[in-house]
Nucleic acid binder design. Structure first.
Lengths: 215, 215
DNA sequence: TTCTGAAAGATTGTATACATGTTCTTCTTG
DNA sequence: CAAGAAGAACATGTATACAATCTTTCAGAA
């Protein structure tokens, strides 16, 4: 048995998340073929949820369908990663700007909690949890923007660089810097200062990128 | 018979395009439920292609799935449209920048052709074909960027504002202005001047937005 | 009249059967 | 030995059957 039957999610959703992770985390070679029948056997489900999951991945450009061959994996190249950081640099500042204007009490409370947890895990030197919190920190901000479109784009870009961001956090000095960058963004949002939030976020994205590029 | 059986596209693809258009063009009320069984009957196909299409729309945030009820339509609100123009303003200049650096002969030839056709249809005052060419003009540029990620995001944003852009082109003076804006972008790209292309594109997006907002 | 509860209905979730088209292999023939 | 054709294997595309879950309706009792 591959998937937990107690988990209420549909099989399609589980299969989607599973294959997506495998692609993003690089467990497939670029150009590998994913064949419905084989995946169905491996994951011990029928072809139906596999098909639906693959259709979604295709829409996301993570695979391309080759008729009668299967779908071909199109993972993230380092060129794609660079592009993502460029695009994030251009729009994530706007997200922080809107968040500073529009955030509500609930999201602010959650953001405070996330920052506190980040401080703790930075002291404990726990990259896994830090990566998780990093994702959540940014997702809370995206949601606070009150912009369905922006949230959707940025959440997807973040997903697709998950692996890069995690490995970046395993280097010795990054967690500390990352924390102070996050705190600066947080404080600007908390004090409802859109311009400062924007500036801080842009700096954060640039730093994350240059770090990834080897700095 | 609803769909052309000679068309080689899969039923899923046709159903997807059909429902997507219905949502974007506003043929459903926001909050309407789409029920697999009913759609299957209406479009005279089985539930399978319907399901796959709906799963894709869900990923695009155009519908949300309500368990045991159907999927609920989440069309574009005017707030969404405003956001899209804001985001386009932030990143479409970058697309033009990259296109000016990287465009190849083939794409440039196609772009030239599109501009010439635009001139013709502007003289003929044909908003339908102008809207089609507008989409193609931008798509050629997106593809010329050599950035899978950017192309993907922008193509989607363009799709989602198709209706707005078309109605905008039916106003008397817009086609002429639009043409001169496009020509300015084209010339900058043709002469491989990235900064000028970027500036011209940003101005174009702002103009398109202010026009839509009532100017 | 109103509340309760059970049954019927509606809807999605999953599996499977069948159709169609492509690719690969093998066997025949020159 | 090589080339081509036929058929087997394989892949996706589509339809349908069945299961599970939730909603609605309607009957009956308080």
């Amino acid at each position: 048995m591959f998937f937990d039957p107690n988990d209420k999610q549909s099989l399609t959703a589980k299969v989607y998340a599973h294959i997506r992770d495998d692609i993003i985390e690089g467990r497939y070679q670029n150009g590998d073929y994913l064949v419905e029948t084989k995946l169905a056997e491996e994951l011990d489900v029928s072809r139906t949820p596999i098909r639906e999951a693959l259709k979604q991945l295709e829409l996301e450009d993570l695979v391309v369908s080759i008729p009668n061959r299967g779908v071909m994996v199109q993972g993230m190249t380092s060129h794609d990663i660079d592009d993502i950081f460029t695009i994030r640099h251009l729009i994530e500042g706007q997200a922080a700007y809107w968040a500073a204007e529009r955030i509500d009490e609930g999201s602010l409370a959650r953001l405070t909690e996330v920052i506190e947890l980040m401080e703790m895990y930075t002291r404990k030197n726990d990259p896994t949890n830090l990566a998780r919190l990093d994702t959540e920190f940014h997702n809370v901000i995206f949601s606070a923007c009150d912009s369905r479109v922006l949230r959707h784009i940025l959440a997807q870009l973040h997903q697709n660089t998950r692996q890069v961001r995690r490995t970046s956090l395993t280097t010795p000095e990054r967690p500390g810097r990352s924390l102070s960058e996050h705190r600066r963004i947080f404080e600007a949002i908390e004090q409802h200062k859109p311009d400062e939030a924007k500036t801080a976020m842009e700096a954060h994205v640039v730093n994350a990128h240059s770090r990834r590029a080897g700095e």
